[in-house]
Design a binder for these strands. Structure first.
Lengths: 157, 157
DNA sequence: GATGAAACGTTCATTGG
DNA sequence: CCAATGAACGTTTCATC
């Protein structure tokens, strides 16, 4: 499943362009990386088939949608059964306002990022959350300012 | 700047489609929402010009890129000057492995999400981070499992 | 808003170098 | 890898209902 795919400098350049702006034509991307259309197109197809490029999406503006509130929710749970954990993961994942959801190491068991319209809206989602899981130790921290938020992954190293 | 734009049910449907899959043609999207190509195309253009649709990007697969480690970093700072904060925000934002960066309310001042190749790579980034800011109270939590991670915002409410 | 059509650009596959 | 082609498809605009 996780085939090793080798990426050279040109592949990385292509990926860097696409993860910042996927509206460019293959010809434009090719020019930017020093390739003509055909080989550039073949590389992109290869990257898609290898699963390196997962999908192409539109990124929407949170403020324009009235989603001004970002909350980080830290959850501690007592030990629970595998079944309970599966149901918890599934139930929380279903909530559309939960945009990120991690199982953590250390003191906190789960970390969520929730996007809401306002505090009242967050309260509604919070209730939904606690109803799903009957959680006890839940702490919410509000983001006052989004300084950086990108879908672009680091490509060099 | 933040003009109020009114979105009806069809606009929301279009946005819902685009933020999950931006490869569909205008004709396909139109069909899905019960519109012919031209009016659907006009709506999308309007949503772009209004800034609701911010950009179109390719989402890459972290594992295929060898970026298996996600770290949440919580930072507490002593009170600092406006200038220091600006320099801090700017410096940290420059680090490509920092993919999210929030100023928080409550006990923690800043929260970062960092993507790294492995623990050694994270250590390298951590050093870069502390060099940028000369930070004292920094705590790192590792994500053991990414249960959900989406760029799709909730559109109803 | 729907429709049809026209002009144009892009994609994709193929050929040959 | 490049260059060149061509058919298919998508986008964009326009005129008309």
């Amino acid at each position: 499943m996780a085939e090793n795919i080798v990426l050279d400098r040109i592949d990385r350049k292509i990926l860097g362009i696409l993860q910042n702006d996927a509206t460019q034509s293959v010809a434009e991307i090719g020019e930017a990386v020093g390739l003509s259309t055909t080989p550039c197109w073949k590389r992109i197809k290869r990257l898609e088939q290898a699963g390196v490029i997962e999908r192409r999406v539109a990124i929407l503006n949170r403020d324009r949608l009235g989603l001004g509130v970002t909350v980080i929710v830290a959850i501690r749970t007592a030990k629970h059964s595998e079944d309970w954990l599966d149901a918890f993961a599934e139930g929380v994942s279903q909530i559309p306002e939960v945009v990120e959801f991690y199982r953590m190491s250390g003191e906190i068991d789960y970390l969520l990022k929730i996007v809401a319209r306002d505090i009242a809206d967050y309260d509604r989602i919070y209730r939904k959350l606690t109803k799903v899981a009957d959680l006890h130790d839940v702490s919410s921290s509000f983001a006052m300012q989004e300084i950086k938020s990108t879908t672009a992954l680091p490509l060099l190293s």
